[in-house]
Computed example of a mutant assay.
Amino acid sequence: MINDTVLIIEPNFSGHRWRYAEWAANAYMEAGYRCVIVTEPSNASHPLVARLQAEDRAELQIALVAPPERSGRRGLSSISYARFHQDFRHAYDVASRGRGVALVVVPYVDYFFLALPFLGSPFGATPWVGITMRSNFHHDQVGVRAPRRPLVNAAKTQLFMRAIRTRGLKTLLTIDPTLAGWWMDIGHRGLKASATAAAIEYLADPFPDARAAEPELAKARLGLGSGKHVLVYGAINDRKGIFELAAALAARPSSKEAPTLVIAGAQDEEVRASLKAATAKLVPAPVVLDRFISIEAELDLFSACDVVWLGYKGHYGMSGVLVQAYRFGKPVIATADGLIGWFCRTGELGPMVDDLSVASINRALDVVLAGVPHATPGAQHLLERNTLSQFKKTLRQAVI
């Protein structure tokens, strides 16, 4: 049997994880492999699943694999890292039957990464590549603003150093450039990692090449009125800082220049009712698109809106919304925390807020809505690498 298949295993299609799975498949198909995206049956109605099933291409298949059945005695299953390790091992075992698997790709390895020192690879001897999005134990060493947890970070550092020596792991890709930098400058020297450790490479969180639409035409398609629009985009939950933004907008004086809040993305059940109440008295009335956003609508949103909100709370990782705003040349209002703050620290991309008070948010809104000029990021800005072509190239290089 020829090993010509790449399995891309991602049980959760929320957020941008389904896109990572599809983009990874495209990268390896372009390199001549057959690809199978493996996910759970709960995603059967997702647009990507429906499209791939309808296309039924030999070079790109979708496999729906249910998690393994578990007995009443949960044992290791009570630990999330171990439970996900079992799920991925089961998905691999089922999806690999009758196929020659050359490589496994895990678009979100944080599910089980810290279980690797104890449980080993869930894919046996098969080579694999993982993408980490939540490794933040190193942030206090590289100038990223995040909660200080010295004992937790020390323990996670040791687990990380053991995990990257797992059998079969060829490359650990990270959407956090500071992790790759930490590894080169501190990690591999200061902690004396084994020569058998996987490579750690930066994988720029991508946004597909696209041209902005004419703003007025985009507004017309979305049903937006005239004036300024502030966009909150993606999975809508409390961590988006949406309630704080709504409170700040409600506190602004009424005027015909008041900005319109645009909330685009499927809302968590926990926030839907309370968000409706929080925005009920805003003038102008907010525009709310509580649904899965198509690619066409996404392009229109970033073309039509004037400001992109990134005042997230309790979020210390990367944001694809930041990349989208940069690609469309739209200023952001960003938290000073985490990687969002690290990328926005120079002020080139828009004002930052140190806290989510009404006063802080409105000061930032005043600056950006007044069109106060900011330095235009140069061609060497790190976000220039956040393209789909660079993403695919990095994934292919990870297995050379």
Score class of each variant (00 low, 15 high):
G341D: 15
A195Q: 14
A154V: 04
A27Q: 13
G347A: 13
V368P: 11
I400A: 06
Q267K: 08
P377V: 06
R51F: 04
P47Q: 13
V372Q: 12
W342M: 14
R89G: 14
A264Y: 07
Q324D: 11
A220T: 12
A199Q: 11
R97V: 08
S389R: 03
Y33E: 11
L60S: 14
V144T: 12
V367M: 04
A210R: 05
V152H: 15
L289C: 03
D354P: 04
E40W: 02
I242F: 00
A375I: 13
I175N: 00
T5P: 10
A250L: 11
M133C: 14
V38T: 10
L52C: 09
S255W: 05
C35D: 13
N12T: 07
W23D: 12
R189Y: 15
L339D: 13
A95L: 08
N237T: 08
A195R: 15
R327P: 00
T196D: 15
R162M: 07
L301W: 02
R221T: 04
R70N: 10
G225K: 10
K393H: 09
Y33M: 13
W183R: 07
E216Y: 02
P259G: 06
G72R: 12
Y20I: 05
A359E: 06
P117Q: 11
R385M: 13
V144A: 10
K256Q: 12
P373G: 02
D56L: 00
G225S: 13
Y326K: 00
K276L: 12
R162Y: 07
Q380L: 11
S45D: 14
F292S: 12
P331L: 00
D300W: 01
R19N: 07
K192M: 09
M29D: 08
E348F: 00
S121V: 15
R363E: 04
R83T: 02
A250C: 00
I2L: 10
T166M: 06
V65A: 09
G181S: 12
D176C: 03
R149T: 13
R162C: 05
Y20V: 03
A27Y: 07
V232Y: 09
A82W: 01
S389H: 08
